[in-house]
Simulated assay, not measured.
Amino acid sequence: MAPPSVDDYLRLRQESGLSARTRQEAENGINGAWASAIVIHVESGDAVGMGRVLSDGGWYFHVIDMAVLPDHQRKGIGDAILAALLDRINAHAPNAYVNLLADPPGRRLYARHGFVESAPASIGMKRV
């Protein structure tokens, strides 16, 4: 599973409502994922969805960059992307610890795939 191009990555993030990234950030990071999935619209040839996984390759797996363009949402694309990433993780590490940070629009999708809130046992934190 190849990552999206830098242009597709930046466009998918922006148009789906994720935070903007710089071209340099995208160029530096796009090939650093353990796994990537991208959905290409057959008729137009355009990338309409993506997801990536960061990992140590052994036990820890972190789902990132889940994005589907608004005109293509609610058609099962997010489910297909997440299922493909989770299938790859399960084939490689059946007892993996898989986590993600869930913004409100994606929470129902993640719950359908077995994700639950980790609080209060643990909470997501970030450096500011």
Rank of each mutant, 00 (worst) to 15 (best):
A20S: 06
R21S: 07
T22I: 10
R23I: 08
R23C: 07
R23A: 11
Q24G: 06
Q24E: 15
E25R: 13
A26P: 09
A26V: 09
A26M: 11
E27I: 11
N28A: 12
N28G: 04
G29V: 03
G29P: 03
I30A: 06
I30M: 02
I30N: 14
I30G: 05
G32C: 03
G32A: 00
A33D: 06
A35V: 04
A35L: 12
A35S: 12
A35D: 08
A35T: 07
S36H: 09
I38W: 01
I38L: 09
I38S: 06
V39L: 13
I40N: 03
I40H: 07
H41Q: 10
V42D: 15
E43F: 02
S44R: 00
S44I: 03
D46S: 07
D46Y: 05
V48M: 05
V48P: 08
G49D: 07
G49N: 00
G51T: 04
G51L: 02
R52D: 04
R52S: 11
L54D: 06
S55M: 08
D56M: 13
D56T: 10
D56C: 12
D56E: 14
G57R: 15
G57Q: 14
G57Y: 14
W59V: 12
W59M: 14
W59T: 14
Y60G: 06
Y60W: 14
F61K: 07
F61S: 04
H62E: 10
H62I: 06
H62P: 04
H62Q: 14
V63S: 05
V63D: 03
V63W: 09
I64H: 12
D65A: 04
D65N: 01
D65Q: 00
D65R: 06
D65Y: 03
M66L: 13
A67F: 02
A67W: 04
A67R: 03
V68I: 13
V68Y: 09
V68G: 05
L69E: 01
P70N: 07
D71P: 15
D71T: 11
